[in-house]
Deep mutational scan, measured.
Amino acid sequence: EEERTFTNEEEARKAKKEAEKRGLRVTVTKDGTTWRVRIG
């Protein structure tokens, strides 16, 4: 499991799409101005 943080919503969405392409489970949460993308 890996967690990545982004300040840019577009980049967070891109990371989510890429992980889904690899067949991984992805959770995206917004924490104030930060987007957290949890993969795995």
Rank of each mutant, 00 (worst) to 15 (best):
E9Y: 15
A19V: 03
F6M: 02
E11N: 05
A19M: 12
W35R: 01
E3Q: 06
K16S: 11
E18M: 07
G40R: 10
R38N: 10
G40I: 15
A19F: 11
K30P: 04
K16L: 10
F6S: 00
V26K: 00
L24P: 00
A19Y: 13
E11T: 04
E3W: 12
V37I: 08
R36L: 13
V28G: 01
L24W: 07
R13W: 15
R38I: 15
T27G: 02
T33G: 13
V28Q: 01
W35G: 01
F6I: 01
K14W: 10
V26D: 00
G40H: 15
T29I: 14
T29E: 09
V28R: 00
W35P: 01
E20M: 07
V26L: 01
T34A: 08
K30S: 13
R36E: 04
E18D: 11
E9W: 15
E18F: 06
E3I: 14
T7D: 13
I39V: 08
V28E: 00
E9A: 09
K14L: 12
T27A: 04
T5P: 02
T7I: 07
E10M: 11
T29H: 09
R22H: 09
N8V: 06
G23I: 01
V26M: 02
K21D: 14
R38L: 14
I39Y: 08
G32I: 02
A12S: 03
G23M: 02
E20C: 05
R36F: 13
E20H: 04
A19L: 14
G32V: 03
T33L: 11
R36Y: 14
A15W: 15
K21A: 14
A19K: 02
T29S: 08
R4L: 15
F6Y: 13
R25F: 11
N8I: 06
D31N: 07
L24K: 05
E18R: 04
N8L: 06
E3F: 09
R22E: 06
I39F: 08
K30T: 14
E18H: 06
R36I: 15
E11K: 04
K21L: 13
V28T: 03
E18W: 11
E2N: 09
T7W: 09
K17E: 15
R4P: 03
V37Y: 01
A12K: 00
R22F: 07
E3R: 03
